[in-house]
Every structure is written in structure tokens, then in C-alpha cells.
Design a protein around this nucleic acid. Structure first.
Lengths: 95, 95, 95, 95
DNA sequence: GTGGTCTAGACCACG
DNA sequence: GTGGTCTAGACCACC
């Protein structure tokens, strides 16, 4: 392998940054909420902001917010209340 | 906004790590090749390694490598020959 | 060349059906779309079916459909929007 | 579905001609030789033309010719003789 | 429910 | 042993 060949191979011998090292957005958001509950920042009965607001401040779409929340509701960590309330979910009891 | 409300909003007021910071793998690879041509590391007539080799050393699938290369071929930056030649593509002239 | 030799050569003197007569699937599909645009069947703003639907009705994989479409998008013949809209691509203006 | 929508779907509702309906070139060639043997056109001891000639008259590469022949040699239908003989293979006995 | 990206694997024809 | 094509399947973020 001559010198130039070696140079050329250098272009290709380092891995690219996998898009999968960046965790999925909905999981990042979900993790924040989990952490907040675990740390006591979110307590039983606390409301989280409306989806629309979260989407805006975190720079993701509302669908992504919903996806993060839905899992937590399924697990019972959040309770979804329907209606006109400005909050969409509530921290459940300690479970 | 009471104190706790403020705390809760803190959970959501920083953007997630955008998936767009991690650009698609095929664009990252494409950029490397473009840079190498621009910087003179790849010169007219230089061969790049076979697709399968690139895929292996960079930790991506061959399809992803091809996708990166295809655009460059379309733009005329690379020339691709099929056959048993050890080189898969050749840098075209200065254009 | 004796008679039998002549017979034997007959085995080999007609070309096989070239694989190139059967053009790649993605080019065949691409051509259909080009023709539809050229013939006015697809007009500015018309949506084509979702990629998955095309793949199903044409009996090819979604990857192949995408490959056909990608070129047309690059050329500006189709415009692609992501999201939940029922249309996947839109015919651009007359260019 | 309005009339135009129906027209558009017509573009996509017929399958493309699968590249796989066109049998692989090396199998087409192989079949011709098998048929010639089966029909008695090629008999024990008959030589087939050199690879290079077959490749030329049939419009395929020499590699493809070799691939077709190799299988037949493996099966014992052809015998490969090395050396300066203008023929590369010979029909074996009836097996 | 749509497009965007990625993977792993396969078969083909070729210099 | 290389590029060309194709498949089946998966996960993600989005209107």
C-alpha cells in the first residue's frame, strides 16, 4: 500500500456517528419525566404542561410528545384526564 | 406560577438532542468523500475501496454506502465501473 | 466445418435474452411516472399513492419504489412531504 | 374516488415486468447445452466452441460462459480438457 | 398511516 | 471479488 493509498483508506477507517447513538426523541423526553417523578420533582397530582407547550419548548412535534406520554400512562405513572383542563396528565400515587 | 410549577416547567424547557444533529449516515459518509476530493486527498483517477470494505470499516451496511456514492456519481464527482477491478470508483476531473 | 460442427455452432449462435431487455424494476416504475406526467395524467398538485401501497400493487418492495421516486424528487418532478397526509408526493409545476 | 384519482391509480396497479422472469443468462446458456445433449445434437466426444467464441456469439461475458459450463462439468455432463485444444469441453457418456 | 433511514442478506453479470 | 439490483423487515419522527 503506497502512501496515497493509505491516505485514502483513512477517509473510511473511522466509523460514522450512528444515528442510533442519539436516543430517540420520544425516549429522551420520556426519560426526563421518569427522572422527575423519581426525584420527586413531579409528585402525585402534579400536572405537566399541555402537549402543545412541551412540543414548543422541546423542539419536537406534538405526536412525539404524545408517544412519550402514552407509554407512561400505560405504565400508570401518569394519569390522563380528558376535558378542558390545561393539564393533560397527572402523576399517580407512588406505584 | 408558584415555585413548584416553575420546577416542573424546567423539565421541559430544554430541547432534546435533535436527531438532526446526528445527520443520516449516508450523508456523513458522502460528506467525507466530498471533503477528501475538495482537499485533494482524492485526486483524479484515485480509487476508493470496494463498497463492502467501506461498509465493514465504517460499520454501516452496504446499502448505506451505495446510497452515499450514488449521489456523487450522479453529480459526476465519482465514476463507477463494474467488474473485478479492485477499485470501485474513480475521482473524475476537477469539475 | 462438417455438418455436425455446424449443428453444434447453431446452439450458440443466437444471443440469450439479454437481462437488459428487462430493465431494472425501479427504472420501469420511474418511467411510468415520467410518462404519466408527460401525458398529463399526473398534473401539478396531484398526489400519487403512498409508497407502501405502490409497492403492494406493483409487487415490488418499498425500497424499490423509493429508489424510483428519489430520482424524480431530485429532478424536481415530484415533491415529497413527510407526515400523515394521504398523499406522498405531488407533481411539481411544468418544468 | 373521483375520476382523476382512478386514473392515477391506474399508473400503479399493474405489476412491473420482474427482472426475474428473464432467467439468468448463465442458466439460459446452460439450458441450451443441456437440451442439445438431451436431443442428441451434442454427442459423446463432441467439442463445444471455445468460451471466447460462445461469449461473442451469445452476447455475454466469458465469465458467464464459464459459469454455465462449470456446473455441467460438475455434473459430469461435460468434460473439461486442458491444453491447447480449441475445444474446452467434451460431452461425456450417457450418464 | 406516512415518508426517512437503516440493516442483513441474496442473486446476478462482469474485467 | 467487484458493482447492480432486489427483498423483507425494522424503527423513527412527523401533520
Amino acid at each position: 500500500m503506497d502512501r496515497n493509498d493509505s491516505l485514502i483508506h483513512k477517509i473510511f477507517d473511522t466509523p460514522v456517528q450512528s444515528a442510533r447513538e442519539a436516543r430517540p426523541l420520544y425516549l429522551q423526553l420520556q426519560q426526563r419525566i421518569r427522572d422527575a417523578i423519581r426525584n420527586g420533582v413531579l409528585r402525585y397530582g402534579d400536572a405537566i404542561p399541555p402537549e402543545r407547550e412541551i412540543a414548543g419548548t422541546m423542539g419536537v412535534s406534538r405526536v412525539t410528545v404524545r408517544r412519550a406520554i402514552d407509554d407512561l400512562v400505560t405504565e400508570g405513572l401518569l394519569i390522563q384526564r380528558q376535558g378542558s383542563a390545561p393539564s393533560s396528565a397527572t402523576v399517580s400515587s407512588s406505584r
